[in-house]
Simulated scan of single mutants.
Amino acid sequence: MLTYKPDQTIAHRLDPRSKLAVQLGFAATALAHTSHRALLALSLVCAFVLFVARVPLFETLYAYRFALVVLATAPLIAAVTLGPPWFDASDGLASARASYRVLLILLVSTAYVRSTPVRHSRAAIQRTVPGKPGQVLGIGVALVFRFLPVLQGDLRTIRDAMAARLGTERNALERLTTIGLLGLTRMFERADRLSLALRARCFAWNPTLPMLSFSRLDVPVVIGAVALALTAFL
């Protein structure tokens, strides 16, 4: 499960605003460039980010397995045509490059999630985006980071319970329907409990958030983020 993991890596010691800047810069240049040389350079940058944050690659790919299926299927669908020649390899390759860029962006975002506490992410957003919009965005990000792993755990529990009761003997449509309905029911129950818990704790729009400060480690990171963003215009 992709959640924050305490550690002493360089990525963990960086200010979350620096890491957000790297993500934005990387995404901008990844979406702007489609050449093979650009993809190779982006792959090296992504590998360096994963290494610095000590992100386990195979565990991450397994966590993204459903997204990987979609990314792998997209080039095949893009290459199929309704008439002769029935299969256009150039369209498939263009879609494959796009899918690979999306995968790189996902991997870089994983490094941020693994190295940044949820409260620090909220503080970074609220202190970057002023006013109520920043507060709403910070709250939304914090709730997603905390709520999504719980929902994933519920779906895993439902799936394991079905397997223990020979649910795997049912057809695929019936299994998907059962898991989907039970998952939605559990999601609404979790949402109701979350709402009650927020009211019981006198939920505040502007709580005391952790102090954030840039250090010497953040200087080259911010410079690299700006350089990545500028390469989108080359």
Rank of each mutant, 00 (worst) to 15 (best):
A21K: 14
L230Y: 01
V136Q: 01
N171I: 01
L181I: 11
M187I: 06
F145N: 09
D154F: 04
V45A: 13
Y62N: 15
G180V: 05
V108A: 00
F188V: 15
G183Y: 06
T73M: 15
Q23E: 11
A41M: 10
V136T: 10
A227N: 00
A172L: 10
A229Y: 05
T3V: 14
L151R: 04
R186H: 12
Q8V: 05
L173A: 11
V80G: 12
F214W: 11
L212P: 15
P207D: 09
W205C: 08
G25S: 12
F58Y: 03
F87W: 11
A67T: 11
D160S: 13
V219H: 03
A32R: 05
L184P: 00
G224H: 13
D154S: 15
S195Q: 07
G92L: 08
P210A: 13
Y64H: 14
L194H: 06
Y64M: 13
G140Q: 00
L198F: 01
A225S: 07
H120V: 03
T3F: 05
Y62L: 15
Q135C: 07
I125C: 08
F58R: 13
H12P: 08
R175F: 10
N206W: 07
F188C: 00
C202K: 06
R97G: 07
T178G: 15
A98N: 10
L2W: 05
R216T: 13
A98E: 02
S213P: 10
R156Y: 03
A72L: 15
T185P: 03
S35Q: 10
S195C: 08
L148Q: 12
T231C: 00
R119N: 15
A232R: 03
G183K: 06
P220I: 01
H12D: 06
L106C: 08
A27S: 07
E189S: 06
S35H: 08
L24G: 07
E189L: 12
P75M: 08
F26N: 07
N206S: 11
L228T: 08
V219Q: 12
L194Y: 11
L166P: 05
V113R: 03
A74D: 04
L20M: 14
P75R: 01
